[in-house]
Design a binder for these strands. Sequence first.
DNA 1: TATTGTTATACTCTATAACTATA
DNA 2: TATAGTTATAGAGTATAACAATA
Lengths: 194, 194
Amino acid sequence: MNPDASGDPPAAAGKSGGAGAAGTRRKARDPLAPDPAGTEADTGFDPHVPNVDYGVLDSLVGYAIRRAQIRIYEDFVVSLRQWQITPPRFSALVIISRNPHLKLTELARILGIARSGAVLLVDALEEMKLVARRPAPGDRRAYSLVLTPAGRRTLEAATQAVVKHDAHVGSALTESEQATLKSLLARLAPPRAG
Amino acid sequence: MNPDASGDPPAAAGKSGGAGAAGTRRKARDPLAPDPAGTEADTGFDPHVPNVDYGVLDSLVGYAIRRAQIRIYEDFVVSLRQWQITPPRFSALVIISRNPHLKLTELARILGIARSGAVLLVDALEEMKLVARRPAPGDRRAYSLVLTPAGRRTLEAATQAVVKHDAHVGSALTESEQATLKSLLARLAPPRAG
DNA sequence: TATTGTTATACTCTATAACTATA
DNA sequence: TATAGTTATAGAGTATAACAATA
């Protein structure tokens, strides 16, 4: 359905062993035991590494958008890390906030994800005490999604952070250029059925 | 490191049971057994469902890009489904093709992913017989990545499909507008270290 | 029969940590 | 010590399939 987006700072992980390189194959290793030097580095995604030939990629509108999105996602996640709110979670909170009595199936359709995915998303937000499932009036199968008081407070703070983040993202462009950008993006490949 | 992108048509999946709704909890179900009606539908992501209030999302440059990327990704995956080539795979093939004797670590940096991710990516491409690991001259730890003849042929065909896909994506814009779009996107939030 | 929410399962992509072989 | 490739583990996000409760 809706591809895209995933990555998110996994926070932590397990451990295990690796092996040598070319032609060789290693045996095994034992779990746990701190690493002397800091392992990886990660200074962020460089959209255009010097002296690298990107071929057709440089001519594609789609790749330009992909590059931009990767960097924006990075900055977004850092900006909202303290609340553990990721792009899909933020979108869900906003949609739930602005559209009272939303049902899970409707949320799924709006976000462009499967119903099962909406269930997991709402499960997470509920566990974070930001969203609650209320019985939907008139339909005992369904739920009415609502923000909790904490959800409203958190969304308010997170929204400020997102607006700030977005201002940073577009800081190199004038207001007019940002408007042009959004307008052009909105005109790309309209939905099949639309 | 590099967030974004994931989704991809999983192709198939398992099965299992679910339950009722509000307040109720179900028991179990047994595996296998065709479903009468077609289960889901999925007519593609609608970036703006009618009568839905998107709140701040509508004012964010980041969300405009996210919306666009979701739709482009969808179309990309459909276009290259016959070769089982996803965006990261296509990028890797192009980069390997245009930059001979590339090492895995370099590929990882260019794509903005962890080395371990590059290993899995190359593993997949190697299994598809599109890429091969050659011993790197002068460094017995490293590999030189190269396209196989089949890899070159597939990349050529896939590139044509991608170019066509990209033309479709931008078909509602003039050449000039597409150039403007790419230019504006490139000016968004430059990399921290740059 | 169709819809709503759910669970089970699986797959892609990505990450961190630790390890081997080599430099 | 540092680097290249690797494996193990983890987890977010998404998908399909099948099911119970209800409409």
